[in-house]
Design a binder for these strands. Structure first.
Length: 892
RNA sequence: AGGCGCGUAGCUCAGGGGGAGAGCACUUGCUUGACGCGCAAGUGGUCAGGAGUUCAAAUCUCCUCGCGCCUACCA
């Protein structure tokens, strides 16, 4: 590209779209099918088609994108599969709402038309999130876009269902399940959100039935009095003397007048309430189990709408369950059966989609027998076949798998994978098949009715890592990219999704679905609260990208993505990191100004061995360290470390020191030096851009396109910079530190004594031996950096009168300030220095005075402390002398 | 009830047995031949509290307090 000058500030508008198009046209993110590069693959956690990009997605995508772009640089063949999830209940709800506006229900449309309507909705709105994924710069392979309801994945779902059924791992039966009366469907245990609410515990009298002399009664305690209408027993603990004599007798259920038995079961907690439990097998999970065990009647009094049915009795039939509760309580009270009512905090299950209170409900459902699958999923992590980062989530993962219960997978909705099961209307035979059966294999009847229910959305999500790669076909993709390298996700779906993918992957692919699982943080608001629409504290990632640029936003997420801690996000933070993006832009602008000046004849190839200047040697040394630190950090998922290292290096080393140090060379007369400086500057800039690119792809690519003479325009295809071991020379850091100390010392004097920056100063520095030789070689540089007009470095020098002074590396330095400031200020400044050094000296001397330390600590530690002591003492003495001299001057 | 995590500068957070760190904020000064979205120099800390292990603890162990989250059949 040409040698245009960059604008004064970075403006992301236009830039981002330009490069997105560029990368897409170049197919930069499709794996390189022909090459034998090592595979690296990630499947995207598929967002709901109903969704719009939120902070959680943004973080999730940014981290995956960093990993993918980084691994491309490392030479891997990278595949990142994008896609969306059909989100059964959520999507159906959305479309039903739209229908409601037209005054229609899905029942009015019928199943087929309704499904058609959902597909239409999906085509129209479902791609919104895909554009947003694109917008954030996610380097996915769009040619492999998948959807959980598309043909291939639907085929995988059927295959899995049928195989599990044939293996006896899927079964159908009447059980009590979590029912959402609003969504009209069963939910898995995981889909129920428990929430603490203030409820009440009602104590109700159940009079004893039996003989004429039976005058007694038992008192039960319940939070759901309306369910008493379906009570079929009262249970007590078998060893509870209070009640043991009553076991086997009967009570008369108030309001209903039904006689029900008193049974004994050790499940009952003697300490809770009265120690006497009413049993409603049809409407309580535990009571259901009790009912089965004791062969109790099962009376359903609540229907699938959450209303009381005829079984509840004519007085109550048709009432909503909560209205009924009030009525029951009122009647009990009127008839003298209500003993008391206590407040009680307890947790109540709510639907995770619509937040309606869950109703335990008995119905015919399909289940996956998970224990055998769970065991394998557990072992794979225990054996290290899959590693979870941060490691502590492993325990949570184990705990869940160890206590897992069968998974209810049928949903009474229409949008989803319809269960491939048919019942023969003639003979009642149940058929489970991959292909729709034309007739009953048993009686040849053609009157078959397909199961109405669809599968839990997570059932298809569980297959995602292999279904997206073409399973059950034996595809090239499967062979090359399964198991995937890493799964990046939030902990909130560790059970929902991660554990289930592990189970299915191991069962059907005989191998784990991913080598690593990286669990990232939750993005919260600035106060640390979860973002939610109802709280009104959501920060829209799209707005942030519009306002500050995608790079600034991505860098912010990365810089805060420390393992195991949530991210508190705020607009100010993003704004802060925009400054960094702009800083990079301006550093590049400066560099490119000088690179652009260069003519072909002047141009020098970058050859580190020939660069003798301190600045170049130092920056190249540091660059080597940074390269290895960033690589190490990213391989360990320490994203914040990578971001932090680069921030510090680019701003405070490259910009603050290196660029300042090479200015005299760049603006100087010596053409050879100038050319060398340009070559090094260019190299360092290019490597910085490569290192930053995975985090902030746009600004780096934009700058890259301006680099003169660069043949490869596509930064996304650049390799991670090679190591230059010859540039590592630790002693250069020490030298640099010395120089920086001298410069900072002068700047400090200037600043603390209030001398104008424009005022050129004189500096007299005592130094000898190698140190002096070194400083002499850097004389011009020091004069430039410290803004000096005179610099003298001598082994012996007479302190000029009326000067400010300091001690650096044991050498006194003097800055004559007689006419600029009063002696008082300088005395105060020296006192401050002395106070500092005294403090440090005290710490070190105390340590060395400790015999235990000197005897037991490792020799190198003790030596270090001794050296420090010597340095500090020396510095203290010298500072004191300087102070004395100045005080004398003042007095005389 | 059990489990996990957190408590470090005013704020947000790194660090994780041998000199308390960063960013933001704050103070002072500044048209410094890239950048005021900037430059330079500074101020600021009983590393929640207590006990223990150790020559040495912000760091390891235990306890206490506070905060957050997850899991559970808390009628």
């Amino acid at each position: 590209m040409g040698a245009q000058e960059l604008s004064k500030g970075y403006d992301p508008r236009g830039v981002e779209e330009k490069w997105l198009k560029f990368w897409e046209e170049k197919k930069s993110f499709s794996p390189d099918a022909n090459k034998v590069k090592k595979p690296y693959s990630i499947v995207i956690p598929p967002p709901n088609v109903t969704g719009t990009l939120h902070m959680g997605h943004a973080l999730n995508l940014t981290l995956q994108d960093i990993l993918c772009r980084f691994h491309r640089q490392l030479g891997y063949d990278v595949l990142w599969v994008p896609g969306t999830d059909h989100a059964g209940i959520a999507t159906q709800n959305v479309v039903e709402k739209a229908l409601a506006k037209e005054g229609k229900t899905r029942q009015m449309l019928g199943r087929e038309k309704f499904i058609k309507r959902v597909w239409e909705w999906k085509e129209e709105y479902g791609n919104k999130i895909l554009n947003q994924i694109r917008r954030i710069g996610a380097s996915v392979d769009w040619s492999r876009l998948r959807f959980t309801m598309d043909q291939g994945l639907s085929r995988a779902v059927r295959e899995v269902f049928v195989r599990l059924y044939e293996e006896g791992l899927i079964y159908q039966g009447d059980y009590i399940i979590n029912w959402c009366p609003r969504c009209h469907t069963a939910l898995a245990d995981l889909e129920v959100e428990h929430e603490e609410v203030l409820g009440a515990l009602y104590y109700i009298k159940y009079p004893l039935a039996g003989g004429t002399d039976a005058k007694g009664e038992v008192i039960v305690a319940t939070t759901r009095p309306e369910t008493m209408l379906g009570d079929t027993a009262v249970a007590v603990h078998p060893e509870d003397e209070k009640y043991s004599h009553l076991v086997g007798q009967e009570v008369i259920l108030p309001l209903v007048q039904r006689k029900i038995p008193i049974i004994a079961d050790s499940y009952v907690d003697r300490e809770f309430g009265t120690g006497c439990l009413k049993v409603t097998p049809a409407h309580d999970m535990n009571d259901f189990e009790l009912g089965k065990k004791h062969q109790l009647d099962l009376i359903q009094v609540i229907d699938d709408e959450g209303r009381m049915n005829e079984q509840a009795g004519p007085e109550f039939a048709g009432l909503d369950r909560f209205e009924c509760r009030e009525k029951v309580v009122q009647l009990l009270e009127e008839q003298g059966f209500l003993v008391k009512k206590e407040d009680l905090r307890h947790s109540v299950g709510h639907c995770y989609r619509c937040h309606t209170v869950i109703e335990p409900y008995v119905s015919k459902q399909w289940f996956v027998k998970v224990e055998p699958l769970a065991k394998k999923a557990r072992d794979a992590v225990a054996d290290g076949k899959t590693k979870i980062f941060p490691e502590h989530w492993t325990k949570t993962y184990f705990e869940w798998l160890d206590n897992i219960k069968d998974w209810c997978i049928s949903r009474q909705i229409w949008w989803g994978h319809r269960i491939p099961a048919w019942t023969c209307e003639s003979c009642g035979h149940l058929i489970v098949a991959r292909e729709d059966p034309p007739e009953c294999p048993k009686c040849k009847s053609v009157h078959l009715s397909q199961e109405e229910d669809v599968l839990d959305t997570w059932f298809s999500s569980a297959l995602w890592p292999f279904s997206t790669l073409g399973w059950p076909e034996k595809t090239h993709e499967l062979e090359k990219f399964y198991p995937t390298s890493v799964l990046v996700t939030g902990f909130d779906i560790l059970f929902f999704w991660v554990a289930r993918m592990m189970m299915m992957g191991l069962h059907f692919m005989k191998d784990v679905p991913f080598r690593h699982v990286y669990i990232h943080a939750l993005v919260r608001d600035a106060q640390g609260q979860k973002m939610s629409k109802s709280k009104g504290n959501v920060i829209d990632p799209l707005l942030m990208m519009d306002k500050f640029g995608t790079d600034a936003f991505r860098f912010t997420l990365t810089a805060f993505a420390a393992m195991g801690r949530d991210i508190k996000m705020s607009e100010e933070r993003i704004e802060g990191y925009r400054h960094f993006i702009n800083k990079i832009w301006n550093a590049a602008r400066f560099a490119l100004m000088h690179l652009a000046e260069e003519t072909e004849e002047e141009k020098v190839e970058f050859e580190p061995a020939r660069l003798s200047g301190l600045a170049h040697q130092w920056i190249l040394h540091r660059l080597e360290e940074v390269k290895s630190e960033v690589r190490k950090a990213l391989l360990a998922y320490q994203f914040n470390d990578a971001a932090g290292t680069l921030y510090q290096f680019v701003w405070h080393e490259f910009c603050d020191w290196y660029l300042e140090m090479i200015k005299p060379e760049l603006y100087g007369e010596d053409e050879a030096v100038k050319a060398g400086a340009r070559a090094c500057l260019k190299q360092v800039l290019m490597e910085i851009l490569i290192l930053l690119h995975p985090i902030i792809p746009f600004v780096t690519q934009e700058v890259w396109s301006y680099i003169p003479g660069e043949k490869n325009l596509n930064l996304a295809q650049e390799s991670y910079p090679e190591t230059r071991a010859e540039c590592l020379q630790p002693d250069i850091v020490e030298k640099m530190q010395f120089l920086q100390d001298v410069v900072v010392s002068v700047r400090n004097i200037r600043s603390e004594l209030g001398i104008a920056p424009a005022q050129r100063l004189k500096l007299y520095l005592r130094a000898d031996g190698d140190d002096r030789d070194f400083l002499l070689t850097q004389k011009n540089l020091i004069m430039h950096l410290a803004r000096l007009e005179v610099l003298e470095i001598e082994p012996d020098l007479t302190p000029p009168s009326g000067s400010a002074s300091n001690v650096v590396k044991g050498y006194e330095l003097y800055v004559p300030v007689k006419d600029l400031v009063d002696i008082e200020s300088e005395l105060a400044r020296l006192d401050k220095e002395l106070k500092k050094i005294n403090k440090e000296l005290e710490i070190v001397s105390r340590k060395l005075a400790n015999e235990g330390f000197v005897n037991k600590a490792p020799a190198h530690v003790v030596d270090k402390e001794k050296l420090k002591l010597k340095e500090f003492e020396d510095k203290k003495i010298k500072l004191e002398k300087l102070r004395e001299r100045l005080a004398d001057l003042k007095n005389g």
